[in-house]
Structure formats: C-alpha cells, structure tokens
Design a protein around this nucleic acid. Structure first.
Lengths: 208, 208
DNA sequence: TTTATATATAGACTGATCGTCTAGTAAAAT
DNA sequence: ATTTTACTAGACGATCAGTCTATATATAAA
C-alpha cells in the first residue's frame, strides 16, 4: 500500500513550516463541500479523513466532537457566504435591485456547476438539525438573520434610489426573500433545474 | 422482563384476523412519524423496531432494505397528505382561496402541536436525499407535482368564482406556493414559530 | 387425517463503520 | 536536560444495516 498524500511527520511540526496551520483549515474546507452535499449524519468521519489525508487522532485534536466540527464548518460557510453576498450587493455599477438579481444569477451558476447537488449548507443543516439539536438551531438561525439584514440593507438603498416604494418593509421583504429562496433551492435540487429559482425570483420582484 | 405490547403469535396469522395486516402498517405508521422528525440516515432500524415491538426478521420480511422502507413511508405519507389537502380544498362552505387559507391554518396547528419538530416529510427527505439518491428523487418530486396539481385545481375554481383573475397561471402560482411553503416550514422549525408561515402566506395571497 | 407449503416471528450473528479516547512521538520552550 | 506543547497513530466498544437459521402455525393439497 502506498500513500497518495506525502505522509505527515509525527510529533510537533516545525514552527517555520508555513503549511502547519492548514490541517484544520483543510478539514473545514472539505467539510464545507461534503456537508453541503450530504449533510452531517450521512457523512462519515473516515470519508473526510481519508480524502483530506488526516488521521483520526488529529481530527479530535482540533475538534471536540463531530458536532463541534459541524459548527466550525457553519462558521466558515457563514463568512464565506457573507462576503459573496456583499460583493454582489454592494456593486456600485448596478442598482440595488439589480445587485440582488446578480446574486441570484451567481447562485444559479453555482447550482448548475455542481449539478444541483449542493445547494445551501445552512438550509441543508437547518433542515437536518434545526428542529432536533438546539446546539445547531441557534447558530443556524443567526446566519439567516445576518443574511436577512444584508438584503434588508440592500432594499433600503433601493428606497433611496426610488427603485422601490419608501413604504416597503425592508426587513419583512428580506425575510420573505430567504424563506422563499431556501424553498426554491430545495426544489431545484429535486428537479435538477434552475426553474424553481427563476420562478421564485420572478414573484419576489413582482411583489414590490 | 415483561412485554409491554401483547406478544405477537408465532406462525402464519389467521386469514380472518382483522389485525393481521397491522405489523407492516405499524412499521410504516411509526416510520412516518420518526422519519419526519429525524430523517432517514439519522434514524436507526433498531430504534424503530424497539418502539413498534417488531423483530428484525419481520422487518426484512416486509421490506427489502431500509431504503425500500423509506419509499413505503413516502407513499403512505403521500396519500395521507393528499386526503388532508383535499378535505381542506374541497370544502363547499368556503371560497376556494379561503380553502387554501384553511389548509395553512391546519398546517400551522400541526406544527405548533408538534413543537415545530416535524414539518413536512417530503420536504425533509427531499433535502436529505433528493440531490443524492435518484431512487428517492423521482418519487419525491412526483409527490410535489401531485400536490401542486391539487392547489392549481383550487385556483382554477377561484377563477370561476371570480375570486382571482382568469389571467392567472394556476400551475405557476401553485408551484410558487409549494416552493415558498416548504421554505417557510424549514424556517419555522428553526425559529420555533409560525411567523415564517404567516409571512409567506401573506405575500402569496397578495400576489394575485 | 396427514403432509406440504406459505407466511410470519424470533433473534443471534456478521462485517463494516460509527464517534471517541489513550498512548506515544518529536519539536519547542524552559 | 527536562518539561511542555502539538500532533499522530490506531485501538476501542458501540452501533449500524443487513443476513441467516430456526421455529410456529394457518392454509392448501393429498
């Protein structure tokens, strides 16, 4: 048997080794991918460990439990996604509402590129663990509230440009957006098509 | 040790015994409950078997595999839910749109009664297995299409009573309904409140 | 009545995989 | 030189889905 990845040295790694912080990072990074596809319960630790090339002992050095790992993955995804959202929503060459439409287009690209297998990590784990596990429920909902605020801010900007009525309840519309959007992603995975995403987007923009 | 449930008789059951079909039924019935709460992967066979009081041999007599059992549970839920839907939607004392609102109220009652832990089996399994397992994806989507048709029919009736414009695309609105509704259920489980359901319902009815 | 067969229960057993933990190695710090 | 820190290695018991053999009995066939 031969190792595909160069065998990790035992013992404490060299301080000067630039890549010594990457073990945890690699775990979280691949965890984000695989948990988005398969969820937490269906994903075996061994699968992650084998893919990343990290022994079990290391995993439990970095994370207290599998749940703890899941929480770290959520945190990682939260900032990754918030950046993505802001990059779209703060585009100064576009009107606020077009910014939101751009985000939708980018998400559609991502869904298509991954053959409708991934969707949204927060939605997936929310469905799997939200109702069952209080340890996950609260952080998961916090992520949604954060995203909701970013969209609400975007809608507030759309008011100042006169793109939507100043009477609009931005928070409510932002909540409506994420509720419907997550539903659309779930359905898009089922039909393996962007049609549900487009359909929701159309009705969302029509309701201003 | 004493048996909580009266011990099942060994051997081939009486043809005339009215309750001889109940073993399989009991499995499916409890399966519907537990799979709605925890999904397929997170639920162990032993847990189901112990709760229902059925030995493993019986389970694998009735079902070829755990997946096969999951498919049977889906089928059972499909007809149960279709009946529930029709009971609401064909209420002759109410206008078609009020019928839909009644269904929403009934669903809200159910969610509250089960402390926001259950939600919708099809949505849950759709999220868990839809993208991964083709064996589940197709039947799951079929269920949504069936429900969609029932709502579309209801909207057609609303046209004849003049409650909504005859220009409305019933199929599209019905699709929009289930997309948003499943998203709302997911979110309601996260916040342990009916607010997301109400919020989606409000915007849905406003878009006619 | 006797025999054969179909139906279903009963639960021990298997091999794989689960998450967790203890022991050990080696660099770094003292 | 000794201790501490950082990390690896794999053993561990529990549990998983699934299989198998044995048993009991209603029904069908003789």
């Amino acid at each position: 048997m031969e190792n595909s990845t160069p065998t990790r040295k035992r013992g404490r790694p060299l301080k000067t080794d630039g890549s010594n912080m990457t073990t945890k990072e690699k775990l979280v990074r691949y965890g984000t991918v695989i948990l988005t596809e398969k969820g937490l319960a269906s994903t075996g630790l061994d699968e992650i460990l084998k893919t990343v090339g990290v022994p079990k002992g290391s995993f439990y050095h970095y994370f207290a439990s599998k749940d703890d790992f899941g929480l770290a993955v959520i945190q990682h995804y939260e900032t990754y996604f918030a950046n993505k959202l802001d990059r779209c929503l703060w585009n100064k060459n576009r009107t606020p509402l077009d910014c939101l439409a751009d985000f939708i287009e980018e998400a559609k690209d991502g869904m298509t590129r991954h053959a409708f297998k991934r969707g949204c990590l927060i939605g997936n784990l929310g469905q799997e663990l939200g109702a069952l596990n209080e340890k996950f429920r609260v952080p998961l909902e916090k992520v949604f509230l954060d995203w909701q605020n970013r969209v609400a801010d975007c809608l507030e900007r759309a008011k100042t440009t006169g793109q939507i009525s100043s009477q609009t309840d931005s928070q409510e519309m932002a909540a409506f957006f994420w509720i419907g959007w997550e539903g659309a992603i779930l359905r898009a995975k089922l039909v393996k098509s962007c049609a549900p995403l487009d359909l929701f987007a159309k009705h969302f923009f029509n309701s201003f």
